[in-house]
Design a protein around this nucleic acid. Structure first.
Lengths: 181, 181
DNA sequence: ATCTTACATGTCGAATTTGACATGTCAAGA
DNA sequence: TCTTGACATGTCAAATTCGACATGTAAGAT
């Protein structure tokens, strides 16, 4: 039984705490949004699949026809196995970075403007992350601590990209014709 | 006529220089690999689609049944339009970062070991990038200069992640039980 | 009482992406 | 001459992802 990345993400979330599909969707929109995304239309079928595989189970039926799931022992084992296996998808996918390869097609001033706007967006993201950081409860579950650690990665990433974008903008505007030594 | 991200990437590459599907596949395996990936099985059909849309055209038929394509004026205009439109897919997708959210499921020592191994992988990537940097010709096409700029983003990114991973490993191993105030 | 919003789950078709299968050419070295 | 590896293009089924459509409940405000 092979489990997709989405499956592993759901399994991981449900190992920390039992949740409904709605809660999981919210988790993908909030904390996980910046590393992996999924819509509810993908989440619900995946939950059914995981139940079928015996990796999660429904633990409770709530108010609005809601169903709460938790990872089974087999499910938790699967996550641990995934965590320790060699990273297969170590590839990063980012349309924003892809665009940089083609900025040479714009006039230098436009490209520089684009990069400075990117820097602003990255800084804004840092601000959002920092406000999220202030909302994380003071360590109730180990997952919270790891949430902070992942957040730190996000903050460092955004700051690095913001600095890079400003550097690149200067490089392009100031650079002028290439010094061919 | 809507063009996918892959389509825009192909259009951008073919605006810099006419290439065959094989060349494009190589470009996705090399320079673009770290921001967007595509297999030849996706590239060839997409080329046919772009030809149909009048965004690229075959300019030459080579030795082994090879077909060289170049972007048309409409194709170049499409790339410029894409570059200037508001970033839709500003979401980053990384299975490696996703895993971090679930490292709490491992024993602290194992999680720290995982992070230190990550740091090593990031450093190795920096080394690879730097050796690629030495192979870029000295500015023959503006795209080369942008290649360097994109490379710089990659180098800064990997260095940041390597530093973060080491910091996180220390944080976990040193941190001990949570100070509950 | 009605309205709005958040909660909650699902399906379906289309687009995207992957991996396997399939085929053939050309150049260089053994 | 033969074999290997790089060059070169394609198809197909399956998996993944997305966006739209569809439906219904519970709580709180007006």
């Amino acid at each position: 039984m092979k489990v997709s990345t989405l499956g592993h993400a759901l399994l991981g979330l449900l190992s920390a705490q039992p949740m409904t599909g709605y809660d999981l969707t919210a988790a993908f929109d909030q904390s996980l949004a910046n590393v992996w995304s999924a819509r509810h239309s993908q989440i619900y079928p995946e939950l059914a699949k995981l139940v079928g595989a015996g990796l999660i189970e429904q633990t409770e039926a709530g108010p609005r026809g809601s169903k709460r799931y938790a990872a089974t022992a087999a499910g938790e084992a699967e996550v641990r196995h995934w965590l320790q296996g060699r990273a297969p998808g170590d590839a990063l996918r980012s349309e924003r970075l892809l665009r940089v390869f083609f900025l040479w097609m714009l006039r230098p001033a436009d490209a520089a403007a684009y990069l400075r706007a990117e820097a602003v967006r990255h800084r804004e993201q840092v601000a959002r992350y920092e406000s999220v950081g202030n909302e994380i409860p003071v360590e109730r579950h180990p997952a919270d601590r790891w949430g902070r650690i992942a957040l730190e990665a996000g903050i460092r990433y955004e700051n690095t990209m913001a600095e890079w974008a400003l550097w690149a903008a200067d490089e392009i505007e100031g650079g002028g014709p290439v010094p061919v030594t």
